[in-house]
């Protein structure tokens, strides 16, 4: 098996899976019907992308692997999503801040992944890019609305941005599998996206009257499978059926 490629795909797809799962929690509980529908849409887009990635990963892995065995049957230490996407839906401010901080990265990432020498990955990137540019527009608009809106909304979104900022640096960290894939012309060198990322993020925050956090203390670990305490509960929920009723078709 092409071990590095397999790990590399998980590193991409797990972000979409975990973020899609988080957005799915909100379905039916949004601040109004329009945002409810929009958050469900983003969840659907992300999970659609996940299925393409995992179907490809399952082919590479062989041994009877399937999109579902990959999605549901790994141990917590074997999920490689960044810490940012597993953070909870504390309030709508956190949900939008998490979305925005991820979307800006995601769009830059997919734009580069389109150039991958791996044709399956570049095709998935091309297909996903339209969806993700819409996500970024949606979350940026909400960042601006919440930042500019009322004093309360400004305080709340500022708090969310401050709290989640610590997870942004991990986006630009390369694992060994990432490095190997960059060398083969398959992977994206995410370190090179960092300046563009903080530039776009800062522009939107400024327009939204949100202060750019100055903290230089960052958290990472997700890309190595070391997660925050939230992750275990998310997985317990997500894996429940597959664990309680093993080896069945649904």
């Amino acid at each position: 098996m092409k071990h590095n490629l397999y790990r590399y795909i998980l590193g991409i797809a797990d972000n979409s899976l975990i973020l899609g799962q988080r957005l799915g929690e909100l379905c039916g509980h949004g601040p109004n019907l329009e945002t409810d529908i929009a958050c469900t849409n983003m969840s659907l887009d992300l999970l659609g992308q996940v299925r393409s990635y995992y179907q490809y990963a399952a082919k590479i892995k062989g041994e009877g692997a399937s999109e579902d065995s990959i999605a549901f049957l790994r141990k917590e230490r074997e999920y490689y999503n960044v810490l940012l996407v597993e953070q909870p839906n504390t309030d709508f401010g956190y949900t939008m801040a998490r979305q925005f901080l991820f979307d800006v990265y995601h769009l830059l990432f997919l734009t580069e992944l389109q150039k991958s020498s791996d044709l399956t990955l570049s095709a998935i990137a091309t297909k996903s890019i339209k969806e993700v540019s819409y996500h970024q527009r949606f979350s940026s608009d909400w960042i601006k609305r919440l930042g500019d809106g009322t004093e309360e909304s400004n305080t709340r979104i500022q708090t969310a941005i401050n709290d989640l900022w610590t997870y942004t640096d991990e986006l630009f960290y390369l694992t060994d599998a990432d490095k190997a894939m960059v060398e083969e012309g398959i992977g994206v060198d995410v370190a090179t996206l960092k300046d563009a990322y903080y530039k776009t993020v800062s522009e939107v925050l400024e327009e939204a009257r949100i202060e750019i956090p100055e903290s230089k203390y960052f958290q990472k670990g997700g890309k190595q499978g070391i997660h925050t305490e939230h992750m275990g509960y998310l997985l317990a929920d997500m894996q429940y059926m597959q664990r309680a009723y093993p080896n069945m078709e649904w």
Binding site: H29, K144, R145, L146, D148, G149, T150, S153
Partner: peptide
């Protein structure tokens, strides 16, 4: 609960 938790969000959108 969803409606009440969303109030500040709707207010912000209107104010903006």
């Amino acid at each position: 609960g969803a409606w009440e938790r969303g109030e500040w969000v709707r207010d912000a959108a209107m104010a903006h």
